[in-house]
Every structure is written in C-alpha cells, then in structure tokens.
Amino acid sequence: MTDRSPVLELQSVVGGYGRMTILNGCSFAVARGAITTVIGPNGAGKSTCFKAIFGLLAVREGRILLEGQDVRGASPAALIARGVTYVPQGRNLFTELSVRENLELGGVALGSAAAMRPLVEAALDRFPILRQKARDQASTLSGGQQKLLEIARGLIAEPRLILIDEPSIGLSPLMVKEVFATLTGLRDQGVSILMVEQNARSALAISDHAIVLESGRTRLAGTAQEILNDPRVARLFLGGDAGDAA
C-alpha cells in the first residue's frame, strides 16, 4: 500500500533573523514522491522557510515534522542522516577542488571515503557530463554544470527529500530544461522534492503540488494545475491571466 502521509509538514512555524520575524505561522505539507513548488513575491519567506527546515535558522514557534517526527532545531548533519538534502540558491561548491572531490565531500558527514566511493560513481553515472569533467576544477564548469554538480553532490547522501532553492537562477533555458528534467527523473524514482522557484510558470509545469507564500504565511496550497489556473496567482505571480498559463 502506498504511503500517503506527507514526507514533511510545517505547522504554524514562526521564525526569522534576530528580532525580525519572516515566517509568521507558516504551515504546509510536502507530498511523498512528488515535486512541490513554493512560489510567492520577494520577501515572502520562501528561502527562509528552507533554512528553517534545514536547521540553519532558529524556529521560535511551531513544529517541523519529518516523516511524522519533530525535527525543529535539528542540525544539518542530523537532517542529512535522516535523508534530507538542501541545495541553496547561488553557487555552493568548493570551487578549487575537482568535480570528484566535490562529490566525495557530499557524504563527508556520513561515512568514510571508501564507503562513499560507489555513491560517487553512481552520481557520475547519472550525470555523464560530470564524469567527463571529473578531474576538472569545479570553477571551470558552466553555471548549469555547477548546479548539476550541486544536485549530484546532494544525492551522495541518498536523500528521500531534496530542498532546492531557485535551481534555474542564472542558467540558460537549455540548462534550466536539463536541471528540471533531472528533478522530474528523481521524482519518478520516489524522491520527494520541495522547490522554491522564481521561474514559477516553468516550475509549476513540472510540479505536482504548489504552495503560495505571502508575508511568511501560506496563502494558497493545491495541485500545481490548480495553482497555475488560479486567476489570482496568474495575475500576481505568473505575469498574466490563467488563460495564458494554461
């Protein structure tokens, strides 16, 4: 029987930076084995929400349930061990190290280099372009290849849930397509994905579910198609009416 329970659930999460509150009772659920995209205006708390989930930001109130267990305040290491990977926006690589070394460091908190070796090989098999450039310095990769490397490095920990923030930012349309194809491929293998994406229309097109955040609260939640067809969302976040979106 398929497990229908959400892989992740936020319940009335309140948090922010110092005295500044960004998340004002944020609540939503992330479906298992699906892509869920979070959209919203700038400052809505999308990236902050990811940081709160991944233990990089103090949560003042509320609960963060991972597979039913409260992980509020858990360290990134503990979350990685429990199958969560976070790929933040921007470039987050060890640029002076080779592609292979970057991949090896993906599991550094989990096991020895020897234990990581088969996982590194599997990641290189999954991304042939990275195998071609395995010995090259990460800084020599194109922006899209660097993002693929970040995703590949995240996969070394064999995650069940990937938090990915703005994966398309700064990439060419061709690379965006490749990154999104990678995400759908992972979803098809049962990995749950929670994504923040400014390129909302393209993101919703590959998503199963969507959440609209505004002022640190969940304004709307539904299937990606419902959100895509919602005239308010189309007007506010998709740059046109629902008819354009369809």
Binding site: A77, A81, N92, V108, S112, A113
Partner: peptide, 25 residues
C-alpha cells in the same frame, strides 16, 4: 587527505558556509 575528519577540515577551510550545508560540524 585520507581521513573523514581531515576532509571535513579541508572543506571547512575551503568554504565554511558550504561545509555547514554538508553537515560538517
């Protein structure tokens, strides 16, 4: 270069922010 802690130190020296994301203390 060969131990898990050593590689974690290398990662920290390279980029502490990214090292933290990889679960390194």
């Amino acid at each position: 270069s060969r131990t898990r802690t050593g590689r974690a130190i290398q990662a920290t020296a390279q980029n502490p922010a990214v090292a933290r994301l990889l679960g390194i203390n």
